[in-house]
Simulated scan of single mutants.
Amino acid sequence: MKPTLVIMAAGMASRYGSMKQIQQFGPSGETIMDYSIFDAIKAGFQKVVFIIREDFAEDFKEIFEPKLNGRIETEYVFQEMDKYLEGYEIPENRTKPWGTSHAIMCAKEAVDGPFAVINADDFYGSDAFLKACRFLTTECKDDVYAIIGYELAKTLSENGSVSRGVCEVDKKNNLVAINERLKIYRENGVIIYEDPNGDKHSLPEDSMASMNFWCFHPSIFSFLQAGFKTFLDENIENPKAEYLIPFSADQFIKKDLGVIKVIPTSSQWFGVTYKEDAPVVQKSLSELVENGSYPANLWSVSSNV
């Protein structure tokens, strides 16, 4: 069975200030998602599942269905606040989605085999999709997952701090721990992060970072659902608490339920956290088109995908 690609596109884009998931960056109006889907099709993925907001569904489909019809199977699921609440009610002061682990849970009915998960607004590169597809078709099991790892130094923004899951890896290239660092930036040539108290800590240049490119077996769904109940028990009154994939992965490892392989990629990551990142993304994509990595129009007949 060929794997499925799940794209998380329901984020509110508060720091960016607009619906960056559908902003056009490529020379023929392509979004960052277009490049991910193009690379996924070439790598061997057979289906793409979009996790979106229901109020945006029709506009979203109008953008992507004409491009993808006949190229790859598509399905749309909604990250709704009232899903999987286990009897809890949504607090009045809760406006923020429940987080990326909850988003994956919302895709359960649309996935029937090994699958990859990515963000909508990150460019991951063709090598990452090739390696993910290879893992999902040859190694993925109910107790063997994977993450595509990027060098932390290559994932920073010049326009503000970023959040990253910083990985610890053992000699077998398995994930030992993943720590969500919510405020990472470069200061005086050194990569630092701030802890919740505002104290600064340095990070090695070659630290391996998660850019939320995960490879999972469907067994992950029951694990996430159990973890979400615990999350709600502990955080229901905190309007800013999020149930995040790095936390879930860390729990999976610490409970000895299996291993998560770290697969390094040579791909260069880039993305849009802030509006000021947009020109950098456009420039990077233009360079990739100019050097022949991508066609000037991804979905033209001559693109052969």
Rank of each mutant, 00 (worst) to 15 (best):
V259P: 05
V301W: 08
A278L: 04
N188V: 04
K67E: 02
I178Q: 07
E54G: 14
D143H: 12
T273W: 06
C133M: 00
V176H: 01
V281M: 01
D127Y: 03
G113H: 11
N197Q: 14
P3E: 06
I52W: 01
P295S: 06
A13P: 03
K154T: 14
V144F: 12
L156M: 12
E65H: 04
Y84S: 05
V280P: 03
H217Y: 12
S28C: 14
P196T: 05
Y185H: 13
I37S: 01
S267G: 10
T155D: 10
D233Y: 02
M81E: 10
D143R: 14
S157R: 12
G99N: 01
D206Y: 04
L5E: 02
D59R: 11
G113M: 00
E287S: 15
E73G: 05
K255Q: 14
A120Q: 02
Y274T: 03
E65L: 15
G165E: 01
D121P: 01
R53F: 04
E92H: 10
A10N: 13
E151F: 08
V77Y: 05
G165C: 11
E180Q: 13
S14A: 14
N119M: 10
S210N: 08
L257W: 10
M105V: 04
F223N: 07
S163A: 13
P239S: 05
K172D: 15
Q225W: 04
K229F: 11
A13E: 11
Y88E: 04
D122W: 07
N159L: 07
E58G: 04
D277W: 02
T138H: 13
P27Q: 14
E158T: 13
E30P: 04
I263W: 04
R71K: 14
A40Q: 01
W269N: 15
T230Y: 03
V289H: 11
F45H: 03
I51A: 03
D39N: 08
F221K: 02
K154C: 12
F115K: 01
I72K: 01
M1K: 12
V281H: 02
M211R: 09
E151D: 13
T95R: 11
S14L: 15
A43E: 00
I90T: 12
L136C: 01
I260W: 09
E92L: 09
Y294G: 00
S300A: 15
F64T: 06
D39R: 00
P27E: 08
Y243A: 03
V111N: 09
G165K: 11
K200S: 13
D121A: 05
M19V: 13
V49C: 08
G113N: 09
S303C: 08
K61D: 03
S161V: 07
S222D: 13
E58F: 07
G227C: 05
Y84D: 07
E86R: 10
L224Q: 05
Y35N: 08
G29A: 11
F25W: 06
I148M: 11
I90G: 14
N297I: 08
Y16S: 14
D143M: 07
P204C: 08
S157M: 07
E86I: 03
N159R: 09
R15I: 10
V301F: 13
A132S: 06
V111E: 08
E58Q: 11
I22L: 15
P3A: 08
D206L: 08
S210E: 10
G258Y: 12
S202G: 00
D82G: 07
A278G: 05
M8R: 09
P279F: 09
Y294D: 00
G160W: 11
F50L: 04
